[in-house]
Nucleic acid binder design. Structure first.
Lengths: 160, 160
DNA sequence: GTACCTGCAAATGTTTTGCAGTACG
DNA sequence: CGTACTGCAAAACATTTGCAGGTAC
């Protein structure tokens, strides 16, 4: 019997629009632009950066609309606000597809690297239950130094 | 043989003052008040709350001094800024004595419960090394629902 | 005595909000 | 067509900073 491939998950972007529609929100052109720009990258971004990117597509997108749309996406669980010890909060669009990853923050070069570990997830779940809770959303951030930088003097995580 | 009790670790408050002195900072009366108020509770607090509490001790402590002192304590690793998904950042004075604990945030009542798990710590360290990093500071926050609330209709974590 | 510190107030930066006009459904 | 949405600008906050005067050491 031929194995049936799992149907591809709709891109986060489509799920966001669907989520908005199902909540009765109108799919305005501005909201489409903001959603497209939010999920059009795997990188983390700030609210201001998302505004700038959205305005390159449509110069009239307002700051207010970006903040309002971002707030909805966060509440819907499609984007997560992460506090990486930096100045203003960053938003991570990858949680829609990989809701359980954590972040390394390289204290040498400030680069953020995402990771996932099944053992951690299992243990996190056990510990949570042991304390009488049911886990809903886990945020794990590890500030660390880069071994390669220390040994070779160059950090492999820094962008080109 | 009589067991020898481990010498008590100096309270976080004393370590903070010592840390400031060793860095060449002057121990002004304002800084003493802010440090005392910061470590005088096990609860998390905001910068504004620390200002209010400090002013109850000395009405003339300025906002600027509170922010400046808080920034030093965070950089020194004695207090940690935690992003608990709330409005403004919270500060946790318990990291000086227990630098590796995590936080449950009850999504039902917003109460924050601290926890520690040795297995998690070991696994976190392994995963970090596997990715070529050496861990320096770990921040684990788990948003969860409270089982007792769901079963009994009352949340045991809510304050009296 | 002299840096370093403080309080004040103004500057900065971010997010929210009120409102009149616009457009989705 | 009505109601939700948008852009704008002002408001609301949170945090930082410049500076004149004060104080620890």
């Amino acid at each position: 019997m031929k194995p049936v491939p799992a149907p591809p998950k709709p891109p986060a972007q489509d799920r966001a629009l669907e989520s908005m529609r199902s909540q009765g929100l109108r799919l305005t052109s501005q909201r489409r632009v903001v959603v497209e720009m939010a999920f059009g990258t795997k990188e983390h971004f700030t609210a201001e950066a998302l505004l700038a990117r959205s305005r390159r597509r449509d110069a009239k997108v307002s700051r207010a609309t970006v903040y309002r749309t971002l707030a909805f996406l966060v509440k819907a669980g499609l984007i997560r606000q992460i506090g990486l010890g930096q100045q203003s909060p960053q938003y991570d669009p990858n949680f829609a597809d990989a809701p359980r990853h954590g972040h390394f923050v390289c204290v040498d070069c400030q680069k953020v690297v995402e990771f996932y570990d099944a053992c951690l997830e299992v243990r996190e779940s056990i510990v949570t239950k042991d304390h009488g809770f049911s886990p809903k959303r886990i945020s794990l951030q590890i500030e660390a130094t880069c071994d390669t930088l220390r040994e070779k003097g160059a950090c492999p995580h820094r962008n080109p």
